[in-house]
Every structure is written in C-alpha cells, then in structure tokens.
Design a protein around this nucleic acid. Structure first.
Lengths: 123, 123
DNA sequence: CTGTATCCATGCCGATACTG
DNA sequence: CAGTATCGGCATGGATACAG
C-alpha cells in the first residue's frame, strides 16, 4: 500500500515525485500551506476529490511526516490537518517549479500547438 | 493522447507535474541534461524502460518543446535527442526538488517508520 | 463530521512482435 | 537502429453506501 512505482534509479527527484506526483497531494499541500483545514473543507475546496482519495492522500502525507492530524473532540467531531515544518519546506521547494510553470506555460503551449499542427498537417 | 489527468485547479505546479510527474520523464530529462543521447543508449541507461514507454516519453517531451529530435541520416540510422534550453531550465527547477529530497529523505523515512510502527503496534 | 469498505470502469504500462 | 501496433494484466481511482 505504501506506493511502489519506479523505485530503483536512485534519483532523488523521482523519490519526491513518488510522494507528490499524484493528482491530489500538491493540491492538498498548497491548500494547507495557507491555513490548517478540516476534512470537509478540503474536500469542498479541492472539489472533485472523493472522500476516498482525500483520506488516502492525507494518510499518505501524514505517514511521510508532511502533515499532522489534530482531533478536537467535541460534537460534532472535528479533525484539523496542518502542514508540518517539513511540509512547509516541501511547499517552498515546489514554488520554484511553480515559477517555472508560470514563466514557461506560454512557450509550452506554443510548442504543443506547433507540434500538433505539424503532425496533423504533414502526417 | 496529450494526457488529461487532473485539469481544472489552475495550479501551475500540477501543470508541471502532469508533464513530468510520470515515472520516466524526469529520468530522461536528467539523462539528457548531461549529454545528448540516442534512443538505444537512453533505453540502456534508464534500463527497465520498454521501447514503447521511451518513445512515448520522448514524444511527449518533444511536443512540449523540452527536447528536440535530430536525425542524422546514415546507416545504420541514428537519432539523437537533446534537451532544449527550456528543458534545461526545467531541469534546473527540478534541482530544488532534488535538494529537498536529499535533505529530507532521512526524516521522511523516519516518519514512515514511526507511523508504520504505531499503526502496526497499536492498531 | 470524518472517514472506511466495496464494487467496478478506466487506462496505464510491460511484453512482445513487427516495420522501415 | 529507431521506433510502432497489439494485447492483456493490474493498479488507480471514482461512486456509493455505510460506520463511529
């Protein structure tokens, strides 16, 4: 269950990607980086995520020490998730990727357009 | 074929991850960042990658303008793949992730161990 | 509210064989 | 050498119902 994926290839980047390369992890991290958040709130914000996947993602992140789970016993029950310091640092590291994306998205789009036209037009 | 995945959530990081979050892309990028390389050579280095996946990955990266494909006509035919400038810049951006991984891998491992013990021991 | 258990469709990807 | 076409197993993950 811990996720298997590529292993081998002692590439550290791949190691991170095995952790946050899935569809939802970074969205959760991004959200929690702004403020602690409860389960339902997360589900609403991230939107089309199913409870199953949100629970799995949070568990995964918690296991890796990136988020912590705080149960405030009261009724109705509330559970708050927070980014750990390490989670914060990961979020920071992801920022540079974010920056890259913001800078290069137009170029990538343009490249795709060209590529698709070539492929479409000239077989 | 362009890859669908998460879309929505105008998160730029997710956009990059849709591009390089798969198992092989970063390995190819990493390899090409050191030197241009031919198809077969790539396959040998990255090892357990099938021709199918390598071709798909390269095509994907080429489409996004991250690598270029150079055919040197001679026999036997040779095709060389190179990282574009944009590909290089992406590789640089990935470095910070790599750094993060190197710094935090021990902590992550420790966190996992603890988590698994808790879960195993105390149900 | 905070999850978990079950079922099932989808699609990814490895293996393989084949083409130019 | 540099790929493409086809097939099939298997994991991923959505929908849903339900439990504490």
């Amino acid at each position: 269950m811990p996720a298997k994926r590529t292993q081998s290839h002692d590439c550290p980047i791949r190691d991170v990607l095995d952790r946050v390369g899935d569809a939802w992890s970074v969205l959760v991290i991004k959200e929690l980086s702004q403020a602690p958040c409860r389960f339902n709130a997360l589900q609403r914000v991230i939107d089309p995520i199913s409870p199953r996947m949100l629970a799995a993602t949070l568990k995964h992140l918690e296991r890796d020490g990136l988020v912590t789970r705080h149960v405030m016993d009261q009724s109705p029950p509330q559970v708050e998730y927070r980014l750990t310091q390490m989670g914060c640092s990961l979020h920071n590291a992801l920022e540079s990727l974010s920056d890259w994306a913001n800078e290069n998205q137009p170029h990538v789009r343009a490249a795709r357009k060209t590529y698709d036209l070539m492929r479409d037009g000239a077989g």
